[in-house]
Design a binder for these strands. Structure first.
Lengths: 194, 194
DNA sequence: TTTTATTGATTGACGAGTCAATAAAAACAG
DNA sequence: CTGTTTTTATTGACTCGTCAATCAATAAAA
């Protein structure tokens, strides 16, 4: 009973199932069958639509990143002034949708995948560049010439908090994480003033 | 031609080969055969001495951590005063021996392993606790009651720098990394003074 | 009848762990 | 000291399971 136009639906289901499965198992060693089962189809169909396992994983990274990017954009349009822009970027990183045990676990695994997959590395690289560029831009008015360095450190701090969260096991506390990072940002801003 | 007392030699060779292999391949998906081959023996012997793959991996984590811990201790005994103690801890994290592409890659993979292996998780947890405790102790005299929070942030920043290094691909610059982290520490210290 | 959707069955490769066999050192017996 | 036994070191060959990828077959739209 083939209903037409299934392709986009199946693809989306597979991508979501992939993230869920990686998050649940805490590893990239998820089989195509597991993913397909979670998405409610046969593994053969997954191969049919994606061609291979790596392409499914890459699609999952792309999806995770695009969700994050959308959140950042959304928060940025609401921001008035540079300080709020920085806060918007940081907040997006720790929003309930992104800063969630499952997503954090998947994210860490993507970093590992990036070490051997050309495509995954490129994608993560784009995320890094964009995050730093966004931060640097917003920080320029607040810390002046140090904006590049500060942006790098803030970005590293955000990633570090993710890393620590992935270990902690406990339920993620996005607000606390956001506060910690913003606390550091404030320090840098104050330094410029004094 | 069995020379006696091979066990410790073989174990050490296997542990080192494991780290090298993980670093070279950028993944935990290294076969016991690969590791054994790099260590110059058969895979059967690796199983003989370690019992299983996970135990080899755990031993590799333990080794990496003990090298790091030794470095921290060494730097700490030389330190005069709290400020130097903090610097010693940070410097140890980015010393040439630890902050090296191969080791960084292995470290990232250990974090991922920790998500599914009971033992690996416990070991990484110990590293976390110790790092924070060391930092907190040294920071107490410098930032007073905020030492707990500051220690957490410094620790996260260190991990974040590692994470970013693992992606960057380029040769690690330990001095720059150390400077970046110490720069933040200085900010926190100054805050207390003003 | 061509295209799209879908799967069960199969293939082929690979890898963890086991085992039996070989060899040399050490321990022990007389 | 010799001869035998035990212990330690070591590996090639093998088993068993898993998994990515393929294929042939089925069925419903167009």
């Amino acid at each position: 009973m083939p209903k037409l136009g299934m392709e986009p639906i199946r693809r989306e289901a597979l991508v979501k199932a992939t993230i869920a499965e990686i998050g649940a198992n805490g590893t990239l060693d998820v089989t195509v069958s597991q993913i397909a089962k979670r998405a409610g189809m046969s593994s053969a169909l997954a191969h049919h639509y994606f061609g291979g396992k790596e392409q499914i994983l890459v699609a999952a990274i792309r999806h995770t990143m695009s969700v994050y990017a959308a959140e950042v954009r959304g928060a940025l349009v609401m921001a008035r002034g540079d300080a709020e822009r920085v806060e918007a970027i940081v907040r997006a990183s720790f929003s309930p949708r992104n800063f969630r045990a499952e997503t954090v676990a998947a994210w860490m695994n993507f970093y590992v995948l990036a070490q051997r997959s050309e495509q995954a590395g490129r994608l993560l690289g784009i995320y890094h560049t964009r995050l730093r560029s966004n931060l640097r831009h917003a920080l320029r008015g607040l810390v002046g010439g140090r904006s590049g360095d500060v942006a790098a450190r803030v970005a590293a701090l955000i990633d570090g908090v993710y890393l620590r969260q992935s270990l902690g096991g406990g339920a993620p506390d996005g607000e606390a994480a956001e506060r910690a990072v913003m606390c550091y940002v404030q320090l840098e801003i104050d330094k410029g003033r004094s």
